[in-house]
Design a protein around this nucleic acid. Structure first.
Lengths: 215, 215
DNA sequence: AGCCTTGTTGTGCAAGTGTATAAATAGCCT
DNA sequence: AGGCTATTTATACACTTGCACAACAAGGCT
């Protein structure tokens, strides 16, 4: 009697456990912030005990970094997926890209909370700053490529600096609307942000409004 | 001998001390994040000992809230200041507003870091979410008012929903460029972001490019 | 000058932190 | 079926955290 109780457990595969821990980390950070996301909180959420984390990650810092990397890759992956449309005009692809970025699951309060929490540390954490810069430049390059196609289809040949300005502006429009939508989503009708984004971007590019185009 | 050393101190006025503590809090949060901003860190930076904080604030939570409120009021104050120009056309005032928002001191890595850190908690902290929403709506209303004047000067009479769309879009452009500038300021020439912002906004409003205007 | 208020310091404490490590056991291999 | 090994639990530890409180002294008041 008085036998010490010992918790039952199952052995999961390595990849599975790592991903579960990363997901639990993101959940904890989203809910409690970096300060509230302790190893014990994370472990509890992942259904394991705290000690196990050290078996998969050298320390808390590395776990957080991997969690952030995981988040970013998921986000950019989803965003870029909208660009690979067959049988679509460049303009349609641009519109689809904007629409994808300004609706769920990219417009999402939890994702935004995570982004803000991590990016807030970019000023002090060079590794984080570099990760963001790469993601941002990649995103902007995608934008620039589509813009070039759109303008080419209109028989316009912008020089590099003009293209760059367009990409910066369009990127800002998407980012700005994304922030607004994440922070106060219920203030907008469904699809409203995407519609505004497309309209604003087409004005920026000097494209004729849609009603003048053949269907 | 062996007399216990006791630190010398000066009594500061109440307002002064509170503001010093709030500033030290913002500095600490910007540098170390919410997790690294302990009462002892903050007190050290303010040149006092940790116990004193409890003499001015009921707890850490309240100190952080007041610090965020102080930050936001400083930001919006500076932004709105650019709007009160005498003897200027609405269009010039709009341009001045954009320029003010897309240069120092509003474009600033430290301010952005603070904004992101706090706003990242808005999802979980209703008080914070409300504070942001009020600030955002106030900002957007300012934008909407200037836009209405600009269009009126062009003899255009937009209805409410069109005005709303313009305000949302322009707000997004400013926000988006603000984020880009804060996160990667060295990637842009001085004044470049403001120039892009003005150009993009004028395109959004359907204004003729500047070279066609009388000087 | 001396007192008195109160701003300020210093210490203590319980709770929680990340990390280290020993002990246990789940589940594959033969 | 039984052993081996690596996954997992559990405990320990040094340290930090926010908060409470008693002691102290700065500087205005009489």
């Amino acid at each position: 009697m008085n036998a010490p109780y010992r918790r039952k457990f199952r052995r999961e595969g390595e990849e599975r456990r790592r991903q579960d821990l990363i997901d639990a980390t993101l959940d904890s950070v989203a809910e409690y912030g970096l300060q509230g996301a302790s190893l014990r909180t994370i472990a509890l959420r992942a259904g394991v005990t705290a000690g196990l984390i050290r078996h998969y990650f050298p320390g808390k810092e590395e776990l957080l970094q991997e969690a952030y990397a995981s988040l970013m890759s998921r986000m950019t992956e989803q965003a870029k997926a909208a660009l690979v449309m067959e049988n679509a005009t460049p303009r349609q692809r641009l519109a689809a890209f904007v629409t994808a970025n300004l609706n769920a699951p990219i417009i999402d309060a939890r994702v935004f909370s995570l982004w803000a929490t991590f990016i807030g540390r970019a000023g002090a954490d060079p590794a984080l700053a570099r990760a963001h810069r790469e993601g941002y430049l990649g995103f902007r390059n995608e934008v620039e490529a589509v813009v070039a196609e759109v303008l080419a289809a209109e028989h316009r040949k912008p020089d590099a600096s003009e293209l760059r300005r367009h990409a910066i502006a369009i990127n800002a429009i998407i980012d700005g609307l994304w922030v607004e939508g994440c922070l106060a989503g219920e203030m907008f009708e469904p699809g409203e942000l995407a519609a505004i984004g497309i309209k604003t971007i087409e004005a920026e590019l000097g494209l004729a409004p849609e009603q003048f185009l053949e269907k």
